[in-house]
Simulated assay, not measured.
Amino acid sequence: MKIAESVTFGGSGLDRAAHLRTQPEAVAALAERADARCFALWRGKILMHRDGAQGLVWLGMDHSLFAEAPEPFVFLGMDEAGPRFARDVSAFRPEGVDEEALKRFFDPNEYGVPGLPESQRFAEMRGAMMELTPRDAELAATGKAILEWHRSHRFCARCGAASEMINAGWQRSCASCGGQHFPRTDPVVIMLITHGNSVLLGRSPGWPEGMYSLLAGFVEPGETIEAAVRREVMEETQVQVGPVRYLASQPWAFPNSLMIGCHGLATSTEITLDPVELEHALWMTREEVADSFSGADKSVKPARAGSIAHFLLRNWLADRLD
Score class of each variant (00 low, 15 high):
Glu270Arg: 02
Glu80Gly: 07
Thr285Asp: 12
Leu65Cys: 05
Ile225Cys: 12
Arg126Leu: 13
Trp283Glu: 10
Phe218Pro: 14
Arg33Asp: 10
Asp274Pro: 09
Glu164Lys: 05
Glu164Val: 15
Gln54Met: 10
Gly52Glu: 13
Val300Gly: 05
Pro183Glu: 12
Gly77Ile: 05
His280Cys: 09
Ile146Ser: 05
Met48Ile: 03
Ser176Asp: 14
Ile308Gln: 03
Thr194Leu: 04
Val89Glu: 10
Pro251Asn: 11
Trp207Pro: 01
Gly96Thr: 11
Pro83Lys: 01
Arg37Pro: 08
Val113Asp: 04
Arg304Gln: 12
Phe85His: 06
Arg172Cys: 11
Leu192Pro: 06
Ala309Met: 10
Ser64Arg: 07
Arg43Phe: 08
Gly11Arg: 14
Cys174Pro: 10
Gly44Glu: 05
Ala36Trp: 01
Met284Glu: 12
Glu118Asn: 02
Leu147Val: 05
Gly295Trp: 07
Phe9Tyr: 14
Asn109Ile: 03
Ser257His: 14
Val74Cys: 08
Ser257Asn: 11
Val74Lys: 00
Val239Met: 06
Ala140Lys: 01
Val244Arg: 00
Leu265Thr: 15
Gly60Trp: 02
Gly169Cys: 10
Ala28Asp: 15
Pro72Ala: 05
Leu201Phe: 03
Pro94Glu: 13
Ser198Glu: 15
Glu148Ile: 08
Glu279Cys: 01
Arg230Trp: 09
Leu247His: 01
Glu138Asp: 10
Ser268Asn: 03
Arg158Asp: 15
Ala161Gly: 14
Ala4Ser: 13
Ile190Ser: 11
Ser268Ala: 00
Leu192Gly: 03
His153Cys: 10
Lys301Glu: 13
Arg245Met: 12
Phe293Asp: 11
Thr142Val: 12
Gly306Lys: 04
Met259Glu: 13
Arg87Asn: 11
Pro275Arg: 03
Gly210Val: 08
Tyr246Pro: 04
Ala53Ser: 07
Asp15Glu: 13
Ser119His: 04
Leu116Gln: 00
Ser163Asn: 15
Gln23Arg: 02
Val219His: 09
Leu14Arg: 00
Cys159Val: 07
Gly222Leu: 07
Gly295Asn: 10
Glu124His: 02
Ser173Pro: 08
Val229Glu: 11
Glu279Gly: 06
Gln171Pro: 08
Gln180Asn: 05
Cys262Glu: 10
Gly10Tyr: 06
Met259Ala: 08
Gln120Asn: 02
Ala128Leu: 13
Ser204Gln: 15
Ser249Asn: 12
Ala29Asp: 14
Glu220Ser: 14
Pro134Ala: 11
Asp319Cys: 10
Ala28His: 10
Asn167Glu: 15
Gly112Lys: 02
Glu220Ala: 15
Ser90Pro: 13
Val97Gly: 09
Glu235Leu: 15
Leu56His: 00
Leu116Gly: 00
Arg231Asn: 13
Ala123Arg: 05
Lys301Asp: 10
Leu278Val: 00
Leu59His: 02
Leu273Ile: 05
Ala296Thr: 06
Asn167Tyr: 14
Arg126Tyr: 06
Leu59Ile: 02
His280Lys: 00
Ala216His: 11
Gln54Lys: 07
His19Val: 12
Met125Val: 08
Val57Glu: 08
Leu312Asn: 08
Leu147Tyr: 03
Glu124Asn: 06
Glu118Phe: 02
Ser198Leu: 03
Ala17Asp: 14
Gly77Pro: 09
Val239Glu: 07
Leu312Ala: 01
Pro24Ser: 01
Pro221Asp: 14
Leu132Met: 05
